[in-house]
Design a protein around this nucleic acid. Sequence first.
DNA 1: ATGAAATTTAACTATATAGTTTAACCAAAT
DNA 2: ATTTGGTTAAACTATATAGTTAAATTTCAT
Lengths: 211, 211
Amino acid sequence: MTRPATSDNQTRQRIFRAAAEVFEEKGYTGARMQEIADRAGINKALLHYYYSSKEQLFMAVFHVLLKKMFEKIFSIFSEEISFKEKLKKFLEEHIEFMIKNPKLPIFLLNELSQNPALAEGLKEMINYGELRDMIYTRHAKELKGYGIKKNDMPQLMVTVVSFSIFPFAARDMIKIMMPEMGDTKKFNTYMRERKSFASDFIMAALKHHKK
Amino acid sequence: MTRPATSDNQTRQRIFRAAAEVFEEKGYTGARMQEIADRAGINKALLHYYYSSKEQLFMAVFHVLLKKMFEKIFSIFSEEISFKEKLKKFLEEHIEFMIKNPKLPIFLLNELSQNPALAEGLKEMINYGELRDMIYTRHAKELKGYGIKKNDMPQLMVTVVSFSIFPFAARDMIKIMMPEMGDTKKFNTYMRERKSFASDFIMAALKHHKK
DNA sequence: ATGAAATTTAACTATATAGTTTAACCAAAT
DNA sequence: ATTTGGTTAAACTATATAGTTAAATTTCAT
């Protein structure tokens, strides 16, 4: 009855992390249970002892990663600071987050696109309506000062997140067009420069926005 | 020796189109040769009569689609019009192109990310260095007027294309956050509004850009 | 020491799928 | 009419992979 002091949750964790790695790299259909077992340093029998099926394991991993992505975005947007500060902070933190999880966006977007039902679990967890209204309400004066109407919010929000997410999603296309950014170090430097480029760019656009 | 008046190239085309559809929807690993044959209205034997292997068929499809994507971008950027006009035209045409090919970006980005070698064929076909320098040289005065240095060009170019590509790549995430854009019609309307939003936004940012 | 859970080993089953084969059939060019 | 190449049908092979099983071994709490 007693929980044995052995790995247990440690093994579960090792499996989970290995699975997250493999799924992120290869996607659901490309991932192999054998490879997950190998990376976790165990065998297939034990893998199925902890997770009964590939699908179950994938679901566990996918939902954690999707939540991770959204929470990172939402947590910054819900802070009680000015829009300008929020924007700056978002770009700084989110780009650092993306540098640590560069494969996350393509993985999530691709799996979602191939199986839209994957979003089901999260639609309730995320109080999107709430947050969207909140952002505009909280920054109403500041945004109106820039001539941004409530109507413009979806365009603006998609634009803001695209600054940090798109280059990672399009990483390999950027490699084709700009081979000088081939290696990760240079690309990360480029992305760190993008923090201030993006917040300057967006603020400049807002200040000059037609009313 | 004479080309038979039968389908021949028509069948090849039907196969190619069916394959493009299935690969775009399911990706390489998710696609099934049987499904491609079914959609082309033929059987597997004939499919392999035209394309000896899944990989060969995939390569043919992938390269055409990747080229299609790049050519659309490049053709507009190489025209002899002012930067402002080019920007406007790019967003208009490229967003219409994306509306017609909404699954293209995720497909290309995902396959490239899982197999970077896929880019090999195209690196030579695309005269990236040429084009990049050309853009800055041709619009040197205009861009300098906006305080854009040659150094800023990679940031600016990625930004511009992200306006049209990102929302399609992130389509299913947008669905989660903004359920009112769930159906294709509303999303396309949103994207058509984005044409002018984006070009106004970018021009405003440039005009206000610190020198 | 004993028992229970964790883990390994290795062989196994079931299934999906890419690709093959063969024989027959059809359509059109000569 | 004969030939050639496009096409079908259906059964087939080979292989990869998810998942199972059972017996043996290890680990650890008691």
